[in-house]
């Protein structure tokens, strides 16, 4: 077993399955770009281009790439923006935010844009996504993906977490925080390294600053999703716990049945899958018991990467 994951044995529901799956490379998944095409047209293009893909039991807008020799990024249809290569677990936080057509949504750490562009589909042409990314090289990738997928409702800004102006308040915010990336293990041919305590302290400090800033940017009654693609509770539950201690924020339970209903096509598969809950104790630290309402999607749940996310609300009377 990969050493860095050993410490999670007690918090991962199906440890054996996790160990088995985490060491295998993940399939490449394609999300249809509904800003540009429809599922039916895309299916026709798949046939015309003999695209080596299969439908999966997962999201109806998702295909699985089946050619080992080439990447799904090496096709005309990818170049022309008909699909985005995206991990299915990364679609869950977007669904959990449950944005509405016409809504303005802030995506605080937007690059490379997979979740941003999925949000853009949901808010539609009357809505707006403000995609913020402070790192120039990552912002370039974000801009390139926005152009490739032809989104006309995404605005790019470059504030660092602390300098975002607070004049505007939002009803919905996504904070997909920079993290140690343990959940991407199956996509990168590299064993994740254990963070030193100094590195972890620096990273978690940054994560909390971002979440705290996002909370200040919320309208009363607004909601935000805090997500990372790492399993470490210090980067997830502990961050939200600090917010709950320092503000009037409320952690909402995520309706995982609804999420999985949207995520999974086949009712047979749906019966077999359930996401793990958040943890309320880690390294002798007790968290707010409501943090059990966080969702932990491990690679064995959807045969994907990993994603941990929680839904935070600001009370109306704030």
């Amino acid at each position: 077993m990969i050493k860095v994951f050993q410490k999670y044995q007690e918090i991962i529901g199906d440890w054996q399955l996790f160990c088995e799956i985490i060491q295998q490379p993940a399939p490449q998944y394609l999300r249809i770009n509904r800003l540009k095409t429809t599922d039916i047209t895309f299916q026709e293009l798949v046939t015309r281009y003999s695209l080596p893909v299969n439908k999966t039991d997962l999201f109806p807008n998702l295909y699985c790439w089946s050619d080992d020799r080439h990447s799904a990024g090496e096709t005309i249809l990818h170049w022309a923006g008909y699909y985005y290569i995206q991990d299915p677990a990364s679609l869950l936080p977007v669904l959990a935010l449950n944005v509405k057509p016409g809504e303005s949504v802030l995506d605080l750490c937007a690059a490379p844009g997979g979740k941003t562009l999925y949000l853009a589909e949901y808010v539609g042409s009357d809505g707006l996504i403000i995609a913020n990314e402070p790192v120039p090289v990552r912002r370039q990738a974000l801009q390139s993906n926005i152009q490739r997928l032809a989104a006309t409702n995404v605005l790019i800004s470059s504030y660092d977490g602390q300098s975002v102006p607070e004049k505007n308040k939002f009803s919905a915010i996504l904070v997909d925080a920079p993290c140690s990336g343990e959940g991407s293990r199956r996509y990168v041919d590299k064993t994740p390294q254990e963070l030193s305590s100094a590195e972890e302290k620096k990273l978690t400090g940054r994560q909390f600053q971002l979440l705290f800033k996002a909370y200040r940017l919320l309208q009363p009654g607004g909601r935000l999703i805090y997500s990372t693609c790492t399993f470490n509770p210090a980067e997830n539950e502990a961050i939200i716990d600090r917010l709950l201690q320092n503000t009037d924020a409320i952690l909402s339970n995520i309706d995982t049945d609804n999420l999985l209903n949207a995520a999974i096509n086949s009712s047979d598969s749906f019966d077999k899958i359930s996401l793990d809950n958040g943890v309320t104790c880690w390294n002798n630290q007790q968290f707010n018991p409501t943090l059990e309402g966080i969702c932990r999607c491990y690679p064995h749940h959807l045969n994907s990467g990993g994603m941990v996310f929680g839904l935070v609300r600001k009370p109306v009377s704030n």
């Binding site: 042409s125 809505g127 409702n153 995404v154 790019i156 800004s157 504030y159 505007n168």
Partner: peptide, 21 residues
């Protein structure tokens, strides 16, 4: 640039780009 109709820009927000060229 092509930008969706009815977009209300956040006041005082500095942006680097919007829409499809």
């Amino acid at each position: 640039y092509l930008v969706s109709r009815n977009i209300s820009y956040p006041a005082g927000w500095k942006f680097e780009g919007i829409g499809l060229r």
